[in-house]
Design a protein around this nucleic acid. Structure first.
Lengths: 181, 181
DNA sequence: GTATGATGTATCGGCTTGATATATTGCATG
DNA sequence: CATGCAATATATCAAGCCGATACATCATAC
C-alpha cells in the first residue's frame, strides 16, 4: 500500500493552497500551523523528493541570480491522495506536555518547583494568546474565502484551549497556596 | 554531557514512585500518563538497560515459575539526575492534533467533512472526560499524599482542557451551520 | 566594507513509534 | 479437563521524525 506517513499530507495540504519552496513550507509550519503541528527540514526535503517521484507534486526551478530556489506544486494525483486522506477518520491526536510531566513528578522537588513551572507556563500561554487573537482578528475580515474559514476554526480552537490553560493555571496556583497553609 | 533524552526522566520519574518492570511502566504510560505523554516498548527497554549501565537504576530478577520478570529500582544517583532535570525550565510543550490538520486542509473536501471530524472528536472527548472525572473523584479522597497532589493537578488540567475542547466543538458546529445557510 | 540575518537546499545522528516475535500464566467456556 | 484467549513479560527492527549542522547567496545596517 501507499504511504501512511503524516508529513506527506501536511506537504500536500500546504501545496494545495499554493506552490511553495521547502523553506516556505518550514516557515508556514513554524507560524500558522505551529499551534497544532510541527515539522523539520529533515522530513520536509526528503518527503518533497519522494512525493515528486510518486508524481504527487512537480518541481520547478525558479532560481534567480544564482540563488537556488525550487518551487513545488501539487498535481491532480496529489490532490486525489490528499482528499482520500482527509476523508479517513483521524488516527491519533496527542499532547506532549513536558510541563505536565515535570508537574506529575514534582513530589521530588516540592510544591515550589511546581509553582515555578506553572508560572512559566502561564506566561507563555499569555504570549501565545496575544498572537492567536491577532490571527483571529485578521481572519475575521476575510471569512468569504473557504480556506480562511477552515483556518479560522483552528485558530478558535487555539484560543479556547489557551484560555482554559490560563484558567487552570489560576486554579492550580490557588490550590497549591491552599495546600501550603 | 549527559543525556537530554526525555524518556530517561519519564522512567526515572515513574521509578521514583515505586520499583517497576518495563511492562508495568508501559501500562502506566497508557493509563495514568496517557493524557499528556506516551512511550513505546521500543524506547522503554533499551532506555532501562542504558540507565542501569549509568548506575541510575538497578535491575533485580524477580522471575517466578519460569516467567521472566525484571524489576527496576531508582538509585540515589538516578534521583539526583531526576531532580536536576525537574529544576530546569521546560524546553517544549507540543500538541499534535491530526483533527486540526484535517480541519485546516478541509477546504479540499468541504464543510461536511469538517463537520464529521469535529463530531468524532467530540465523541472521543466526552469519553475521555468521563475517565478523567473518575480519576479526579478517586484522587480527591487521597490528597494527603504528595504524589497524589501532583497527580491531581495534572488530572485537573486534563478536565479543564477537555471541557474547553467540547465547548469549541459546539461553537465550531454552530459556526459551520451558519456558514452553510 | 563587513558583519548579521534572512533566504534557500540538504543531510546526519539519534530518538521514538508501531509492529512484531517469543514464551508463559491464568481464566473462562463448553 | 482441554482448549483457546487475554494478560504478563522481554526484546528488537524498520521507518519516521527532530534538532543540529553545513553550505551558499542576498539584503540590510552600521
Amino acid at each position: 500500500m501507499a504511504n501512511t506517513k503524516k508529513m506527506d499530507y501536511v506537504l500536500l495540504g500546504l501545496l494545495s493552497h499554493e506552490p511553495m519552496t521547502g523553506y516556505e513550507i518550514k516557515k508556514r509550519l513554524d507560524t500558522t500551523l505551529r499551534f497544532f503541528w510541527g515539522g523539520s527540514y529533515g522530513s520536509i526535503y526528503p518527503t518533497l523528493n519522494q512525493l515528486e517521484k510518486e508524481g504527487k507534486v512537480t518541481k520547478e526551478d525558479t532560481s534567480s541570480n544564482g540563488r537556488e530556489k525550487l518551487s513545488y506544486s501539487i498535481t491532480d494525483c496529489g490532490r486525489v491522495s490528499l482528499k482520500e486522506w482527509l476523508a479517513k477518520p483521524v488516527e491519533k491526536d496527542e499532547l506532549r506536555y513536558e510541563t505536565l510531566l515535570k508537574l506529575f513528578f514534582g513530589n521530588e522537588t516540592g510544591m515550589e518547583g511546581a509553582m515555578e513551572h506553572i508560572e512559566r507556563f502561564e506566561a507563555k500561554c499569555k504570549d501565545e494568546l496575544v498572537v492567536l487573537n491577532l490571527f483571529a482578528e485578521n481572519l475575521s475580515h476575510h471569512l468569504e474565502d473557504d480556506t480562511h474559514k477552515h483556518y479560522y476554526l483552528t485558530v478558535r480552537f487555539g484560543i479556547k484551549t489557551y484560555e482554559s490553560y490560563l484558567e487552570w493555571c489560576r486554579e492550580a496556583k490557588e490550590q497549591i497556596k491552599e495546600w501550603q497553609k
